[in-house]
Design a protein around this nucleic acid. Structure first.
Length: 384
RNA sequence: GGCCCGUUCGUCUAGGGGUUAGGACACGUCCCUUUCACGGAUGAAACACGGGUUCGAUUCCCGUACGGGCUACCA
C-alpha cells in the first residue's frame, strides 16, 4: 500500500474513506475476525469514520464561515493502541464535561476543527459544542514561521523551563527580567488592539476592553525591541524604593551591601537609563567600584596637554569643597570654570566613572562620595 | 504537492468608497544640556500586483503573487 502511494507520488498519504478500504481494520476484516482479534487482545486503535464527501461548515468567531470538504479530513485516531485518548477526543470530552462556552485556540488548530465538529456530531453533542475562535499566531521577528522554541533567539516561555527530553533549559521572560504585567501587556497587543492609540494596559483594563471583533486574522511578528520598551514603561512606574528592593539581591550577589537610602538614591538616578532591573548593575556599577579602564574614544579625543593641569585644579577644588552634594559640587565646579575656563564635563565623567555616559554628573559625584571621587581623580591623573 | 487562512510604513497597528492614510517601537535631525539621559519638536517610511464594480477604490468582488497554518497512535 505504502509503496503504491509512493509510486503515485502521494506526498502525505491519508487514512480516509477511500484508503481505509485497503487497510486492515474492522471494516475490511469481517465481524468474526474482528471479534477473534479483540478476544486475543490484539493491539488496535479506534478511529473517527469520516464521510467520503460532505461539506463541513462552521462559523469561527474570528474568521467567519469556514468550509472544508470531509474528503480533506482523515480518519483521526481517537483512542491510541495504549488505550490513551488523543487530544482530539480528550479536549472534546473535557470541554463538554466542563461546560466550556468558547474554545479559543491558535490558528494551527483550524485544519482539525472539521474533525472536531464531526466528533461532537457523532456524540450527539453538536448543539452543546463551544463556539470556536482561532487566534492569529505569533510569528518569528526575523525569518519566517511561527515562533519555535528551538530556534528563537529570545525567550518563548513565560517562565524558565526544561524539557524533560532535553538538557538545556529554556530561559523564560520572568527570568529575563520582564515584569509579568508588562509581559501580559505585550502579548495582548499582538493580534489585538483596543482601537485607540493607547498601549499600556493592566490586565483588568484588558479584560474590560477585549472583544473578539477586534482580533486580527493574520499573524503578528514578535518584536523584541518593542517588548523591551514595554518593560521599561512598567519599570518607570515603580517607585525608587521598589526598584531598590528589587536590585538589592543582585547587588548582594556582586558582593556589595549598601543601605536602603543609598540604594534608593542610586535607583532614582539610574532608572531613566534602564529597561530591566538587572541593568542597574550594567549601567551603574561604577558607583560601587572604581573604573579599571577608561573610554578610549573620549580620552583620545579630549585629553590634551592642558588636561593634566586643569584636572589637578579640579582635584584641588573638590578637595576644598566643604559640602558634598550635587548643588555644592556644581557651585565649586562653576567657580573654577570662571577662573580656569571651560572644563570638559564628559572628560571629567570618564576620569571618574570610566564610561562616557550615565546619569546627571554632579548627582553622580555626590552619590559616589567625596573621598572616593578624590581617590579616583588622583588615580586617573597618575595614569595619564 | 493538497487543503485552509491571511496581506496598510522595517515591525506592531488605526482607518475605511472621496483622508495631507493616524499612532507606537526602531532609526535620522533639531531644541533643552559644558556631560549623560529623560523630555519636547521634527524627518524619512506603508495601503503586494492585475483586472473588475463605481463618478471615485487602499477600502467591495475576482484572479495572481507572496506569507502563514495543517497534512502523526504530538498537542
Amino acid at each position: 500500500m505504502r509503496k503504491r502511494m509512493e509510486a503515485a507520488n502521494v506526498v502525505a498519504p491519508q487514512y480516509n474513506a477511500v484508503t481505509r478500504q485497503n487497510m486492515r481494520n474492522s471494516l475490511t476484516l469481517g465481524d468474526d475476525e474482528v471479534k477473534k482479534l479483540l478476544a486475543e487482545g490484539a493491539k488496535h486503535v479506534i478511529r473517527l469514520k469520516v464521510p467520503r464527501n460532505e461539506e463541513i461548515r462552521f462559523n469561527d468567531i474570528i474568521r467567519g464561515w469556514v468550509t472544508v470538504n470531509s474528503s480533506q479530513v482523515d480518519d483521526k485516531v481517537l483512542l491510541k493502541s495504549d488505550g490513551m485518548p488523543t487530544y482530539h477526543l480528550a479536549h472534546i470530552v473535557d470541554d463538554i464535561e466542563m461546560e466550556i462556552s468558547h474554545a479559543v485556540r491558535g490558528e494551527e488548530w483550524l485544519p482539525s476543527a472539521p474533525a472536531h465538529i464531526l466528533i461532537y456530531r457523532y456524540l450527539g453533542l453538536e448543539n452543546e459544542m463551544p463556539k470556536l475562535a482561532h487566534l492569529p499566531l505569533i510569528l518569528n521577528p526575523d525569518g519566517n514561521g511561527k515562533i519555535s522554541k528551538r530556534e528563537a533567539r529570545f525567550p518563548v516561555f513565560p517562565l524558565s523551563w526544561t524539557d524533560p527530553r532535553e538538557t538545556m533549559p529554556y530561559i523564560g521572560y520572568k527570568e529575563t527580567g520582564y515584569y509579568s504585567e508588562a509581559f501580559v501587556n505585550i502579548l495582548a497587543l499582538l493580534g489585538w488592539n483596543p482601537g485607540n492609540n493607547e498601549e499600556i494596559f493592566t490586565l483588568e483594563q484588558l479584560a474590560a476592553l477585549f472583544s473578539f471583533e477586534r482580533v486580527h486574522k493574520s499573524g503578528a511578528k514578535f518584536d523584541p525591541e518593542k517588548a523591551k520598551w514595554f518593560n521599561q514603561q512598567y519599570l518607570r512606574k515603580k517607585s525608587d524604593f521598589e526598584l531598590a528592593e528589587a536590585f538589592k539581591p543582585l547587588l548582594t550577589e556582586k558582593g556589595y551591601a549598601m543601605n536602603d537610602e543609598f540604594l534608593i538614591d542610586f535607583c532614582k538616578l539610574v532608572k531613566e537609563k534602564v529597561q530591566f532591573v538587572h541593568e542597574f548593575w550594567d549601567h551603574g556599577k561604577y558607583v560601587f567600584e572604581a573604573p579599571t579602564s577608561y573610554d578610549e574614544k573620549v580620552i583620545s579625543k579630549k585629553w590634551n596637554d592642558q588636561s593634566k593641569d586643569l584636572f589637578t585644579r579640579v582635584l584641588n577644588t573638590f578637595t576644598n569643597c566643604n559640602e558634598w552634594n550635587s548643588i555644592a559640587i556644581h557651585d565649586c565646579f562653576e567657580k573654577l570654570v570662571l577662573e580656569a575656563g571651560k572644563i570638559d564635563m564628559q572628560l571629567l565623567r570618564v576620569l571618574i566613572t570610566g564610561v562616557s555616559g550615565g546619569p546627571q554628573l554632579f548627582d553622580m559625584l555626590a552619590l559616589i562620595g567625596k573621598d572616593e571621587v578624590l581617590k579616583r581623580l588622583q588615580f586617573a591623573l597618575s595614569k595619564f
